[in-house]
Amino acid sequence: MKGNSTSKVIGIESYRLVGQSNNAPVDITSLAIKLQQTLEITPLLQTFCHEAAKLIPCDSVKYTNEQTQLNYQTGQSRAHLCRYLLELEDETLGEIECTRNTPFSIKETEQIERLLSLLIYPLRNALLYQKAVAEAHRDPLTQINNRAAFDEALAREICSYKRHQATFSLMVIDIDHFKQVNDTYGHITGDNVLKAVAQTIRNTIRRSDEVFRYGGEEFVVILSNTEVAGARFIAERVRLEIKQLIIKNHEKIKVTASIGVSASNMASDVNDTLHHADIALYKAKEQGRNKVIVCP
């Protein structure tokens, strides 16, 4: 049998009502303090869901935000639900859904709304913090991850390899004769080449792989849980896709790239994986460019 549902928008006015209420339970004050103690989305939602479920019995609490593609859920969804859209100053902050096996009373939904009003400002601050962190790790020209993001991601892969022997591979990709493109056609055209190559790499690699702009005309791809044979196959696909690129200027500009590949289990020291991929890249350039070379 289909359960009942309630949908409502929770915004700034509800937040002000909580602040003005003299009847707010002590537990709500405690929750408000706890919600102010983190700028990380997941711990914030964990705290809210845990505390809310203690005050209003729920089988599940779910948060979704389509704009940021955030999803968090605790518990298992049931038939009866209350769904709330969170807004602040005309900005949508996401949606909270509470469910359980029995219907929510009017008093309980009012209490849920009171709790959600306390979440609005901390949630907005956490979303702004997450956005700032993401922008700090994004290359403004190509809109892919930058070197700082790569350093962090590589450190995680190395840690995983040391703990679980989870092999990863690296691809270092360098656009051939890029300086000549800049000198001949100008930096605007050069920027267009960089953006086109970055997009081509991102569209060609797997969803589980990550691409980073390492510097200048150089890109690095991390392939998690990938042996060297798989990395070589993906690198060759990337090389061929880049080779098919045509950048339209006053004349059509063709692009090629050289690629060096190395795997973590091929190096005597996993920390040297990037160095080995670099060596392979320079070998590809020495052998005429537009090639994939795997470091032995």
Rank of each mutant, 00 (worst) to 15 (best):
D191R: 07
N182S: 12
N146K: 10
Q73L: 10
H275A: 14
Q20A: 14
L85Q: 15
D151R: 08
K131S: 05
E152P: 04
R237C: 04
S169K: 06
N225E: 13
R114L: 03
Y72I: 09
E236F: 04
F178Q: 11
E108R: 04
Q36T: 05
L39Q: 03
S208F: 03
T74I: 13
L45Y: 02
D272P: 04
E87K: 14
Y121D: 01
K254L: 08
S60N: 11
I41K: 03
F168W: 09
L154I: 13
L55H: 07
S77E: 14
L116E: 03
Q180K: 05
E89M: 12
V221P: 02
V255I: 15
L93P: 02
N125T: 12
F48N: 00
H50L: 01
D90M: 06
V238Y: 01
S77D: 08
N290Q: 10
Q180C: 06
R147N: 09
V270Y: 13
S5D: 09
I246C: 14
D191E: 11
L86D: 02
D151C: 08
I112R: 01
A235S: 05
D209P: 04
I242R: 00
E236M: 03
N192K: 14
H276D: 06
R237H: 06
Q111F: 02
Q67L: 13
L141R: 12
H276K: 14
L154N: 04
G190W: 03
Q67S: 14
S262L: 11
